[in-house]
Design a protein around this nucleic acid. Structure first.
Length: 517
RNA sequence: GGCAGGGUAGCUCAGCCUGGUAGAGCAAGGGACUCAUAAGCCCUGGGUCGCGGGUUCAAAUCCCGCCCCUGCCA
């Protein structure tokens, strides 16, 4: 069985999740579910980044004890992920004991390689970025990304990580493993960054109580990025026996804003500590409204809960992945454009194309065959199904989720055309003379929808399970081997079930949305 | 300022590598049908392919310059 350890960036425990956070989690969840459906041994981890000066300050501002503050937020975030049906196997928090254990181990490992040294540092520190900024980077004396906050001049004695030493090893790693940073545009950015040379970075902060004590120097805490990045390793049980059950990670999903941490600092830390490197870091883009975050600021209907409520969890998951390319950005001109687009896709693609196809197929099987269809001959629709499925798997294996989804709907569209081509209602009137042709047509439609259910499972788990159930598939989600759509190269055993399939009817899967005029 | 990507129908985008009478989906208009969620299917309208120049029998596609947008780095 193929081992597949998948992570997303852990979220900074400050504030509430918005649609942008949801995009990352849903995309990663699609990959996790897709790999499980293929039969991979998947371990999917998400979590919270709970250390750092910014968090301690926020807790103080609210008059809460810091641990209680992050506990509350962790519960809030985890609740949102449950609502979005994110199927993570673990939820790592950087305030957990297991994490501290791993951070201590990796710092010791780096120290043992001679890559940590003490030096004094003076510079501007942005609490929101949790990093030092050079004076020339400042805009009006403030962090360019957090202009509302005062930036503080900090002078202290710190531990440093000899990052500069890893420029050449990182370059050759990228040379030998072009898949290490994806998509390719991000890889090129990292290559250029490396070519420009690396400075050492600080590995500790002094006088900051909210963090992990630096091993061997209790008056220091581990620099938050070194702390945070290690979560991927701590979730495997590192450094204890058995952590290699999951490590090295197959795929880290992150936002494009934190590539340097994941594609430079993280692998350098691992090299230093003598730990294997992850397979791929995938930097996705952002979903935004006129360039800004999709938060309440952009309009109250854009609140994450409201968006999910609008057409349900599955429809929201569908919309996010369909609308925003997984390897790029999607900017909506305004809140209303986003909502119009959402409603439009919901009605056109989910209600009209897919929902109606399920409905008309089940209705015909009942009307003409009393709800039970036996295997008929292959039809042109079976050929289309195989061809769309092959493209689907290709796209999914390249993590082009939006394109995979497009293939599924290409098949749905083809099936709707097919119904009009064979006109089952006319075959039904011909009686015995056309019985075989009618069996074949209805049979291939049911097989087609079983395939659609399998392919759709990663994106819309509940609706896909419902389609599978109605098309005689039983409870639960189909895997790609027991559905009618085998992965490329496999044989399609389930494509032609030998016993008749009992097709069920039901209420509309996606009732058309008619806004109050 | 350096590097990278992009500017094609009202909207979102494909085509550009490997030049040859502009494509898809959505939205709009019309038609035939009836299994279906007044859904589906078929047809139609609509674009000086950012601007200017060059190469060529022929350029959205190749070359040069400029403008605008986005990202990364300064």
């Amino acid at each position: 069985m193929t081992r597949f350890y998948l992570t997303t960036a852990i979220d900074y425990a400050n504030g509430e999740p918005h649609a942008g956070h949801a995009f990352e989690k849903v995309g990663a969840d699609v990959i996790a579910r897709y790999r499980r459906a293929l039969g991979d041994d998947v371990h999917f981890v998400i979590g919270m980044d709970e250390h750092g000066q910014g968090i301690a300050e926020e807790a103080e501002r609210r008059g809460t004890e810091t641990q209680a503050f992050v506990d509350e937020l962790a519960e809030l975030w985890a609740g949102v992920w449950r609502r979005l049906e994110i199927s993570n196997d673990d939820f790592i928090r950087t305030t957990e004991k297991r994490h501290r254990h791993a951070v201590e181990a990796i710092v010791e490992g780096m120290k043992a390689s001679g890559d940590l040294y003490v030096d004094s540092y003076a510079g501007y520190y942005c609490v929101r970025c949790e990093r030092f900024r050079k004076e020339e980077e400042l805009v009006d004396g403030r962090c360019p990304y957090h202009p509302k906050r005062e930036i503080t001049w900090t002078e202290e004695e710190n531990w440093f990580f000899r990052l500069s030493r890893y420029r050449d090893p990182l370059l050759s790693h990228l040379e030998e493993h072009p898949e290490f940073v994806q998509p390719a545009s991000r890889r090129n950015e990292i290559l250029r960054l490396l070519e420009g040379g690396l400075d050492d970075i600080s590995a500790s902060r002094s006088r900051l109580p909210w963090g992990i004590p630096f091993p061997g120097a209790d008056d220091h805490t581990v620099y938050v990025w070194i702390d945070a990045l290690t979560n991927y390793l701590s979730a495997t049980g590192y450094p204890d026996e058995g952590y290699a059950r999951w490590w090295p990670a197959t795929l880290h999903i992150i936002g494009k804003d934190i590539t340097r941490f994941h594609c430079v600092i993280w692998p350098a830390m691992l090299m230093s500590a003598g730990v294997e490197l992850p397979g791929t870091v995938w930097a996705h883009g952002f979903v935004s409204v006129s360039g800004g975050k999709i938060s309440k600021d952009a309009g109250s209907e854009l609140d994450l809960d409201e968006l999910i409520d609008r057409h349900g969890t599955d429809a929201f998951r569908y919309f996010l992945v369909r609308e925003a390319p997984w390897d790029g950005d999607r900017d909506f001109a305004s809140a209303s454009e986003l909502l119009d687009r959402f409603d439009q896709r919901y009605n056109a693609e989910l209600a009209n194309d897919l929902g109606n196809l399920v409905s008309r197929t089940a209705a015909m099987v009942h009307k003409y065959r009393q709800g039970s269809i036996r295997v008929g001959a292959e039809t042109p629709l079976d050929e289309a199904r195989a061809s769309f499925a092959a493209s689907y798997h290709e796209r999914m294996q390249d993590y082009l989720l939006h394109e995979g989804l497009k293939e599924i709907f290409g098949l749905v569209r083809r099936a709707n055309v097919y119904v009009d081509e064979v006109r089952p209602w006319e075959l039904a009137k011909e009686g015995e003379a056309a019985a075989e042709r009618l069996d074949a047509a209805l049979g291939s439609l049911v097989r087609c929808l079983r395939g659609v259910a399998a392919m759709l499972g990663p994106f819309m788990p509940s609706k896909a399970a419902e389609i599978w159930l109605r098309m005689g598939g039983g409870e639960g989600l189909p895997t790609h081997s027991d559905a009618s759509v085998p992965p490329a190269g496999a044989s399609g055993e389930g494509a032609k079930p030998t016993t008749p399939l009992e097709v069920r009817r039901g209420p509309s899967l996606f009732p058309r949305y008619e806004p109050e005029a």
